[in-house]
Write a protein that binds this DNA or RNA. Structure first.
Length: 112
DNA sequence: TAATTGACTTCGC
DNA sequence: GGCGAAGCCAATT
C-alpha cells in the first residue's frame, strides 16, 4: 500500500477544505487570524489565500465571522464588516474601533 | 496555461 | 493613527 501514500487526504482535502475545517474548529467566543488559519491549513503565509476562500465560504457552517485580521483588526466581511462586528459581539467578543478588545485573550490557537 | 485578483501581513513615512 | 508599497499564496477567470 499504500503506495505512495499519496493522496492522503490531500486529494479529498485541498487547501480550501483544510481552511474551512480549521475555521470550524474555532469555538464560539473566540477568534483566529487569517494567518493562524492558514498555518492550521499547513501554509502560514497563505493568509491572502485564506481570505479568498473565506470570501466563498457562503456556507453557514463556516463561522467566517470568527476569522479576523492580524492585530485583532476586523478585516473584512464581504463588505459588511458591521455585520461581522455584530456577530462577534453576539458571542461575547467586544469590538472597538474596528478592533477586537482583548484580542490576545480571545484569540484561538490551533492545537494539534 | 497564464494572468489577475483578494476578507492578508509587515515595514516605512 | 493613517496611508502606501512590497511580498507571499491559492483560487478564480
Amino acid at each position: 500500500m499504500a503506495q505512495t501514500g499519496e493522496k492522503r487526504a490531500d486529494r479529498v482535502l485541498t487547501f480550501h477544505s483544510r481552511v474551512l475545517a480549521a475555521v470550524r474548529r474555532i469555538p464560539p467566543g473566540r477568534v483566529a487570524t487569517y494567518g493562524d488559519v492558514a498555518a492550521a491549513a499547513g501554509v502560514p503565509r497563505a493568509a491572502r489565500a485564506v481570505g479568498n476562500i473565506m470570501k466563498g465560504c457562503r456556507a453557514a457552517a463556516i463561522p467566517c465571522h470568527r476569522v479576523v485580521a492580524s492585530g485583532g483588526r476586523l478585516g473584512g466581511y464581504g463588505g459588511n464588516e458591521g455585520l461581522k462586528r455584530a456577530l462577534l459581539a453576539a458571542e461575547g467578543i467586544v469590538v472597538s474601533a474596528r478592533r477586537v478588545k482583548d484580542f490576545d485573550r480571545k484569540r484561538f490557537v490551533f492545537r494539534k
